[in-house]
Write a protein that binds this DNA or RNA. Structure first.
Lengths: 180, 180
DNA sequence: TTGACAGGCTAACGACGTTAGCCTATGATC
DNA sequence: GATCATAGGCTAACGTCGTTAGCCTGTCAA
C-alpha cells in the first residue's frame, strides 16, 4: 500500500499541516493565511518559509492528507459487507460533509500534480473503479458522486430538495451498470 | 420569460461587464483585478466604484449573464427534435468547455443569492427538470452533468480517459429514469 | 446663473504572499 | 575545548490586491 505511506514530512512540517487543517476547517480558505497560520504556531509568517517553500506547498500537503483519508476510508468501506455501491456513496458524501473546506480544496480547480506524491491521486480514486467493469462508467459515477457532494456543500440545490432521495435515485440509475 | 429580461444595468455598467467577461475568459480569475479591468476601460480602479459597489457586484453581473446564457441555450435545445436528454447534456458540456472560467465562476463555491436577480437561478435550472418526472432524479442528473463538466475542465480525469464514452455511459444510466 | 451630480482623478490604507538579511542555539568536527 | 555549519527563529520591507477618502470637472436642469 505504497501510496498510503506516511508523508515524507518532518515533525515540524507535520505540526504545521495539522494546524493548517484545523484553521481551514474552522474558518475556511480565507482564514488560512500565512500570518494566521504562523500566529497559531507562535511564530511569525516569514519563519514558515523555513519549512515550506510557499503557501501552495502547505496546501499541497493538506491535499495529500485528504487523498489519503479518502483512499483509506474507501478501501475500508469496500471491505465491509452489504451494498458496496451505496456504502461507498454514503462514505463519499460523509467525507464531503464532515470536512467541506478540505473537500473543496481537494477537488476544486486545477491540481498541480508536481506537488503531490506520484500515484497518490490514482490510488485514492481506484476504489470507485472496482465497482464497475467499465472504467468510463466508473468515471461517470465519480462525476455523479462529486456533483452531488459539491453542490450539496455549496448549497446549490433548492432548499425544498430531498437530497437523500436525490442520492438514492442517482444510485439507482448507476446500479444497473454496476458489477457488484 | 421574466427571468431572461435584460439586466437592469446602465450602458456603462454593461460595458464594464463586457470587458470583465473578456478578461476573465482570456486570463482567468487571477487576471480579473479591479486595476486590470479599469485599465482595459481606460480609467483608474477607484473610478469603477462609481458604477459597482465592489468587485463581487461585477462578478455577480457576470454570474447573471452566465445563468441567462445557459437558461436560453437550454430552452433552445429542448425545443429541437431528437434525443432531448443527450442534446441537453451535450449543450451543457459545450457551455462549460467554451467558457471554462465563466462556468467555474457560475458554479463554484457558495452563491450570494442577494446579489443576483430573484428567480434567475431557478429559471436557468428549470430545463433539466423537464426531462424527469421526479425532481430529485432531475437533481441527481444535474449533479452528474456538473460533475462531468467541472472534472473535465479542471482536468481531473486520468489522461487515458475516454470522456465521450464516460458521458454517454452516464447518460445511459439516467435514460431509464427519464420521462422523454 | 447656479447648482446638483455623474464620473473621472490621486493618495493612501490594511491585508496578503513573499524576500532579504540578521541573530541565536544546537551539535558535530578538528 | 574551540570552531563553525546549520536549523529555525526574527524584523523590515516590497509589490499586489480590494477599497476608501476626498477632490475636480463637465453637463444639464432649475
Amino acid at each position: 500500500m505504497v501510496s498510503s505511506a506516511p508523508e515524507a514530512l518532518t515533525a515540524r512540517q507535520q505540526q504545521i499541516v495539522d494546524v493548517a487543517a484545523t484553521i481551514l476547517e474552522a474558518e475556511g480558505p480565507n482564514g488560512l493565511t500565512m500570518r494566521r497560520l504562523a500566529s497559531e504556531l507562535g511564530i511569525k509568517a516569514p519563519s514558515l518559509y523555513k519549512h515550506f517553500p510557499d503557501k501552495s506547498a502547505v496546501e499541497a500537503a493538506l491535499i495529500e492528507r485528504g487523498f489519503r483519508i479518502w483512499g483509506e476510508r474507501a478501501r475500508q468501506v469496500l471491505a465491509e459487507p452489504g451494498d458496496r455501491l451505496a456504502n461507498l456513496a454514503s462514505a463519499y458524501r460523509s467525507i464531503a460533509r464532515d470536512r467541506p473546506y478540505l473537500y473543496r480544496l481537494l477537488t476544486t480547480g486545477a491540481l498541480d500534480r508536481s506537488r503531490i506524491a506520484p500515484g497518490l491521486e490514482a490510488w485514492s480514486g481506484a476504489p470507485i473503479g472496482e465497482l464497475f467493469i467499465d472504467g468510463e462508467t466508473a468515471r461517470a459515477f465519480w462525476a455523479f458522486l462529486h456533483g452531488m457532494a459539491i453542490l450539496e456543500i455549496d448549497r446549490r440545490f433548492p432548499p425544498s430538495s430531498d437530497l437523500d432521495r436525490a442520492w438514492s435515485n442517482g444510485l439507482a440509475a448507476f446500479r444497473a451498470l454496476s458489477s457488484s
